[in-house]
Amino acid sequence: MYTNGYNVYKNNSVNYASKEQLLLMLVDGAVKFAKIARQAIVDKDIKKAHENVVKTEDIFLELMATLDTSSGKWAENMFAVYRFINEKLFEANIKKDVAIMDEVLPLIEDVRNIWYEAEERARKANA
């Protein structure tokens, strides 16, 4: 009974979210899946590590695909950061290397923090 209610809530929160809220959900997901992947590598759970690295890669591919690089140098720089993160995730997945995950995880968290700060500044500017 509660599971169904939660699924409806979760589905509605995605369906009715603004573009900004969806972006924040994506970057939160990237951090979550990267942390799960890192722990799975430590635990030698190859399948779980692979699945969660791929989820994180997919999020960054989506971020790259939807980034308007014609909007300035900052967008080009973000694209380069996203590409670098994806390359490191690919390498970590191939090697199942926790050190690479330790290198890339702070970058993923930084991306999340940048978008949260941008959303907060936009909200304050519109208030």
Rank of each mutant, 00 (worst) to 15 (best):
Ala125Pro: 05
Ile94Phe: 06
Lys48Val: 04
Glu76Thr: 08
Phe79Ser: 11
Ala49Asn: 03
Ser71Ile: 02
Ala127Ile: 06
Thr3Ser: 15
Asn126Ser: 10
Asn7Ser: 08
Tyr6Met: 14
Asn52Lys: 08
Asp28Phe: 07
Met1Cys: 02
Asp68Met: 04
Gly29Ala: 11
Gly72Arg: 08
Tyr16Ile: 00
Leu67His: 09
Asp45Gln: 01
Phe60Trp: 11
Lys73Tyr: 12
Gly72Phe: 08
Thr3Phe: 13
Asp97Ile: 00
Glu119Phe: 05
Ser70Cys: 09
Val104Lys: 10
Gly5Asp: 03
Ala49Gln: 03
Asp97Asn: 05
Leu63Met: 06
Ala125Tyr: 04
Leu61Pro: 08
Asn93Val: 01
Tyr82Phe: 12
Leu63His: 03
Asn52Cys: 10
Met101Asp: 01
Thr69Arg: 12
Glu87Trp: 10
Met78Ile: 08
Tyr82His: 10
Phe60Ala: 10
Lys95Ala: 05
Ile46Trp: 01
Lys47Glu: 00
Arg123Gly: 00
Phe33Tyr: 05
Tyr2Val: 05
Leu24Ile: 14
Asn4Gln: 09
Tyr82Cys: 12
Glu119Tyr: 06
Gln39Asn: 12
Asn93Ser: 04
Glu119Leu: 05
Leu89Phe: 12
Asp43Thr: 00
Asp110Arg: 15
Leu23Gln: 15
Arg121Leu: 01
Leu63Gln: 07
Met1Pro: 07
Lys55Arg: 12
Ile46Tyr: 00
Met64Arg: 04
Arg121Gly: 01
Ile59Asp: 12
Ala65Val: 07
Glu120Met: 08
Arg83Ser: 11
Ala30Asp: 02
Leu22Glu: 05
Trp74Phe: 06
Asp110Ala: 15
Leu26Phe: 14
